[in-house]
Amino acid sequence: MHALDYFNARLEATISPMDYVKAKQMSPEKYFLIDVRNGPTHVRSVTIKDANVIPEQELQSRLNEIPQDKEIIVYCWDVWCNTAAKVAKFLLEHGYKVKELTGGIAAWKEMNFPVTNSDQGNNIPDNCGC
């Protein structure tokens, strides 16, 4: 793979927090944001504002909650976590249009973009799965 092919593929498969905020402002109904993080509930209590919380461990049983007609944006913890990449691959295999939010919630919070406290997912095992 040539460098140009790599960067084209990377840009097609990811979206930065800044680009997502801009795109969402221009076309708010186009996107469906999913927090796919696993792990202890107490560390998952903060989510990106308006994100749908569907942990990777519940994805298969909750697939019906994800709209086929929107662009799906998935995120996990940080650049070191590959849970969002696993979810993106799974959703792509099931016919969804998907991008991974680069940097996960860590990058989002670093840019001081809006977050909310969430008490969803209280029954998720404490196993991260990254």
Results as ranks from 00 to 15, higher is better:
G104W: 00
A107N: 06
V53T: 12
L4M: 10
F32V: 11
G39P: 05
A84N: 01
P40R: 11
G95W: 01
D5C: 09
T14C: 03
I124M: 14
W80M: 07
E93V: 00
Y31V: 14
G39S: 14
C128P: 02
A3S: 09
H42Y: 14
P67F: 08
P125W: 02
W108G: 01
T116R: 08
H94P: 00
P67A: 13
A88P: 01
A51D: 08
N64Q: 09
F113E: 02
S45L: 00
I34N: 11
K99A: 03
K30H: 13
N52W: 04
A106E: 07
S61A: 11
Q25C: 08
G104R: 01
G121A: 08
G104I: 00
D78S: 15
S45D: 11
T83A: 11
A88L: 06
P40I: 07
Q68D: 03
Y96A: 02
L33G: 11
E71F: 02
P114H: 11
L4A: 14
S27H: 12
M26N: 15
K49M: 11
A51C: 08
I124W: 11
N82Q: 09
A9V: 07
D5P: 01
N64C: 02
N52I: 10
G95E: 09
D126E: 12
N52V: 14
Q57E: 12
V115E: 08
K97T: 15
C81Q: 12
G121F: 02
K89I: 04
K24D: 07
C130Y: 06
K22I: 13
P114K: 06
L59G: 03
N123P: 01
K30C: 12
M18S: 09
T41Y: 11
K89C: 13
F90A: 12
E56N: 10
A84Q: 00
I105Q: 01
A3Q: 05
